[in-house]
């Protein structure tokens, strides 16, 4: 297996300093659906690099932001969070973070606080969002309020990796935020405040955007 990663550019985090490269990490308890979300977003295009001797599953994606082509590396864990705490290199040079919990398991929501604390130790400023996954199991959960994100000033998404609700929207916005952060890290906090002000508005637009993306329009508001 070591031979697979012989062409070690994958392992060289210096590449994330280049303009056209961003790194987005996924955090959250095991089995909340981090990998499933990734696979749903990337669909047929996805070529995860399992790097089986490494504590990482790498998903590569090419995005267009504005008129620029950006290579996005999504970092997902290999499952080591069940055994150990995350290694600092996982956070190193990340430009955005997607924090996921499972709406069916309260503990995974409670643990967001721990994940967030650890994230901020390593990456105090990067854009981060909170993602409530598995809403397909019981759409009523979308009427409940999950205040952790709001309290921390983080955008919040109800998603379903199983049926695709909001998945593309969430990923696109996070890619954009990652690129923005990279280009202009200092303006980031202002932007968050703006995002927050528009937060309710944005939620109402979910339907139309999801339709454009060819997703099922199972919006929380319709339930």
């Amino acid at each position: 297996m070591a031979g697979d990663v012989g062409s070690i550019p994958e392992l060289d985090q210096k590449k994330y300093d280049a303009d056209e490269q961003v790194k987005i990490i996924c955090l959250g308890d095991s089995a909340v659906g981090k990998s499933k979300l990734m696979e749903r977003f990337l669909m047929d295009e996805y070529r995860p690099q399992q790097l089986s001797t490494y504590a990482l599953t790498l998903y590569k994606y090419t995005a267009t932001v504005g008129n620029k082509t950006v290579a996005v590396d999504f970092w997902d864990t290999a499952g080591q969070e069940r055994f150990q705490s995350m290694h600092p290199s996982y956070y190193h040079k990340a430009h955005a973070c997607i924090m996921v919990f499972d709406v069916q398991r309260k503990i995974t929501y409670k643990n967001l606080a721990n994940w967030y604390k650890e994230l901020r130790e390593y990456r105090p400023e990067i854009p981060c969002c909170v993602v409530a996954n598995k809403i397909d199991a019981d759409l009523k959960v979308t009427q409940r309020s999950f205040n952790f994100g709001k309290k921390q000033g983080l955008p919040f998404y109800f998603v379903s990796a199983a049926d695709g609700t909001n998945v593309v929207k969430m990923f696109r916005e996070m890619i954009k935020r990652a690129v923005d952060y990279k280009q202009n890290p200092s303006d980031f906090m202002d932007e968050v405040m703006q995002e927050l002000e528009n937060f309710d508005l944005e939620k109402k637009e979910d339907n139309s955007e999801a339709d454009e993306d060819g997703l099922k329009a199972e919006s929380p508001e319709l339930v």
Partner: peptide
């Protein structure tokens, strides 16, 4: 120990 490497 897990037999997995981390990145530098």
């Amino acid at each position: 120990r897990l037999a997995i490497h981390n990145f530098g």
